[in-house]
């Protein structure tokens, strides 16, 4: 069973078509990089996948659970890291995790156990008592990833999670999430416009002007170090 199955998804803002018949799937353990330039429709797709918006056409299923027909079951199986930071800066790392755990129905004790587990996984165990405000950008992002794992989802959605981070933090977060897919069998959909975050064995989806232009393994789509040029050529806007 696919962790994420999107079929014929379309969405429009008034008369402007933001997504046109988008179809793809992500299998358990697969790291799928959703590449698209600004305005390609990535954020709209994420809003639909997280049910912030509801599409009038198409179907989204998470681990076989239809997002429209069974939203709670589908949402319970996905973890989300939004592009904008969604931490409560006045709360400690542990309290941020406990709050989220409670929203997902975890008891206090269970949430505390899971919090230690995910912080350990993200190399942040020693920061549990720190205020989120005192963390640097990279650690805040890691905390958001840890939080998204609290309810043990099978699918992890990340919308441009490295925006605004320095090169070292970007590399660390990218490596961590690749590890989650490889070692824990988590399905990952990682939206980005930075091709250097993609490894050769990742699946690549190229989204442009609301349509999927290409889907395949990075190493099959373009030769080593050639993905950037391929992506640019594919998504080049015609000059007037």
């Amino acid at each position: 069973m696919d962790a994420l199955d999107v079929a014929d998804l379309s969405f429009r803002y008034g008369r402007k078509e933001a997504l046109k018949g988008v179809s793809f799937h992500v299998a358990p353990g697969e790291f799928c990089a959703l590449l698209g330039p600004n305005g390609a429709g990535k954020s709209t797709l994420f809003a639909l996948l997280t049910r912030l918006f509801v599409a009038r056409q198409g179907r989204i299923a998470v681990m076989g659970q239809d997002l429209q027909a069974a939203p709670r079951a589908a949402l319970a199986r996905m973890g989300v890291v939004f592009q904008q930071m969604t931490l409560d800066l006045d709360l400690s790392v542990a309290r941020n995790l406990a709050y989220f755990g409670a929203l997902h129905g975890l008891s206090r004790r269970e949430a505390a156990l899971r919090a230690s587990e995910v912080l350990e996984r993200l190399d942040m165990a020693e920061r549990a008592g720190e205020k989120a405000r005192d963390l640097n950008g990279g650690h805040r992002r890691r905390l958001e990833i840890a939080r998204a794992l609290m309810h043990r989802p099978r699918l992890l959605l990340l919308d441009e999670p490295t925006v605004g981070l320095d090169a070292r933090s970007r590399a660390a977060i990218t490596a961590h999430v690749h590890g989650l897919a490889r070692d824990d069998g988590l399905a990952v959909l990682w939206a980005t416009h930075l091709v250097d975050e993609v490894t050769p064995s990742d699946t690549v989806l190229i989204l442009h002007q609301g349509q999927i232009l290409q889907r395949g393994r990075a190493q099959d789509i373009a030769p080593e170090h050639g993905l950037a040029a391929h992506f640019m050529a594919l998504t080049e806007e015609p000059t007037a």
């Binding site: 969604t86 931490l87 989220f100 929203l103």
Partner: peptide
């Protein structure tokens, strides 16, 4: 606007 509302609204509750 800042995004934290999204966190609440994606919780698996009505």
């Amino acid at each position: 606007e800042m995004g934290s509302m999204r966190l609440l609204l994606t919780a698996p509750l009505p």
